[in-house]
Write a protein that binds this DNA or RNA. Structure first.
Lengths: 149, 149
DNA sequence: TTCATCTTTGGGAATCAATGTCAAGATAAA
DNA sequence: TTTATCTTGACATTGATTCCCAAAGATGAA
């Protein structure tokens, strides 16, 4: 799993401030999980998180993991995806450009891509229907390059 | 729930042929569920389906409902959506133009819209990455017109 | 139509992600 | 440090979905 400890520390500082101003106490679990999430530049599941903590010998309960995900979502540090795999996936968004996903029906692989046209659609729609759009999720499904062969 | 029995019968005929050619036996449950799904021009959950059948006095097991959804997906008569509500939603696509969804975080309401720009993105991406795209799901999240007030 | 075969159904058990509960432990402010 | 309040962890619970298997149904051949 790709890591970037340098960039993550700035974000962590930001998060701590936001936690305090939102009335969240700074606990070891919250900070540890946030660090891990901010260093992880890939989508991950709660299971990935728990497994990683168990592997490095850090105790962490399932409930806490889910609760901290909830907090990070609420504070706008994470975005949640559903790739239709029966399990939610998370991704941090601070300092991480938004992107879309392609899921291969055959091998289950998830690739990322981005397109400026999404923002155009977003603008069109929010104007047309008077929606306030805070987030979006676009997934394409089909067969990937490798599986086509 | 909106219904359209006239248009659905043609689609049903098509489905029956496809079922046979794919080796699926024509059972009452499959046909009844397919009829219902093809007449329903809104997204629905398996729960909606079961409830509707119970209400009209038709027996139907949960397992069968899920199995038939699987079949209809496989045969390309349904598309599956995940609005982040912990439950899958389905929609038939034959003779029903593709559209996207907006989900209000506040009231949970789901609105539909469409945009021609999605197809442009689809073309761009399948060319750029050599993907064969069969399906997509775009959801915008935020606050709807009513809840903004 | 009847039989033989293979498929499908129903209903309950099983699974699995996610949430609720609550006593014990940790944090923040005085 | 002390107190009031928030968090955590362990376990129970929920809720959607899938699995299992005996009974019922569909299909094709005779």
């Amino acid at each position: 799993m790709q890591k970037d400890k340098a960039g993550a520390s700035r974000e962590l500082q930001l998060l701590k401030e936001k936690m305090i101003s939102s009335g969240y106490r700074l606990t070891n679990q919250r900070i540890d999980i946030a660090k891990w999430a901010l260093e992880t530049h890939e989508h991950f599941s709660v299971d990935d998180l728990l497994f990683s903590f168990r592997k490095k010998g850090t105790k962490l309960s399932t409930a806490t993991a889910y609760r901290v995900m909830q907090m990070l979502l609420e504070l706008g540090f994470l975005i949640e995806h559903d790739f239709g795999k029966g399990q939610k996936f998370f991704e941090h968004i601070i300092g991480h450009p938004h992107h879309e996903h392609f899921i291969c029906d055959n091998c289950g692989g998830v690739s990322e891509f981005s397109s400026g046209k999404i923002d155009e659609i977003k603008k069109d729609i929010s104007k047309k229907y008077n929606f306030h759009i805070t987030n979006h999720s676009l997934c394409f499904f089909g067969t990937c390059d490798k599986c086509k062969k």
